[in-house]
């Protein structure tokens, strides 16, 4: 484990905690895309099928459990919590899941490292994670006022992806035979989707004004 990987995982963890903090303490999910959260729950459910078959480390297993547990509980909160669900922007969050899920599944069936159930599902989760943020970005663009916690949540998610790229560069030079084209390309695509958001995030931070994405 290198410093970039650890920093990436911690940023990812922080993003989830920020979102849970908003939902649990403020009892609001305004500006949060349920579509994106459902896609993440699916990403983790399909990626971590190996949680019962392969043991890598205690750290690995614990983190997997946290990401699975948090993503499903966030979905539960937005859908079913008596108070939280009332703040959900249903009319604005209209992105259709299947437009992302079906192409990712087809791609995973044709482009993968090994044709086994677990491996295809794992590859599907990589492709889906790369684009899962799109409903959230669309929602942010429609929401005129983005609150601090939602902005930080998206920023931390983007930072996590960026740090993983540094982790791969580091591993490429330090570990023999560390070549994972599918992971790398999906990861770079995912990070690029945040480029526009990052630009406006830093602008608003620099000028000390509320974050707003242009329509």
């Amino acid at each position: 484990m290198n410093i970039f990987r650890l920093a990436g995982d911690m940023t990812h963890l922080a993003s989830v905690l920020v979102l849970l903090l908003k939902i649990h303490t403020i009892k609001s999910c305004a500006g949060v895309s349920l579509k994106t959260q459902e896609l993440y729950a699916l990403v983790f459910a399909t990626r971590y099928l190996d949680i019962v078959t392969d043991f890598i480390s205690v750290y690995n297993t614990v983190m997997k459990l946290i990401f699975l547990g948090s993503s499903f509980s966030i979905v539960w909160y937005i859908r079913h919590h008596r108070v939280v669900r009332r703040s959900y922007d249903k009319d604005q969050d209209t992105f259709r899941h299947y437009l992302l899920m079906i192409p990712c599944m087809l791609l995973a069936l044709f482009v993968h490292e090994k044709f086994t159930f677990k491996e295809v599902m794992w590859t599907f989760s990589l492709y889906l994670e790369a684009v899962a943020i799109l409903p959230q970005l669309v929602l942010l663009q429609r929401t005129r006022n983005i609150d601090n916690l939602t902005g930080q949540y998206v920023f931390l998610l983007g930072a996590y992806r960026g740090l993983y790229i540094f982790n791969w560069i580091y591993r490429y030079f330090t570990e023999p035979h560390f070549v994972h084209w599918i992971t790398w390309i999906a990861g770079v695509v995912q990070t690029l989707l945040y480029a526009d958001f990052f630009y406006y995030y830093f602008e608003s931070w620099k000028n000390n004004v509320r974050l707003q994405l242009p329509a």
Binding site: R5, D9, H12, D50, I56, M63, K64, F67, Y164, F178
Partner: peptide, 10 residues
């Protein structure tokens, strides 16, 4: 190349 223990990243 494949890693012996499967995927070690999250």
């Amino acid at each position: 190349m494949e890693q012996p223990q499967g995927h070690d990243e999250l």
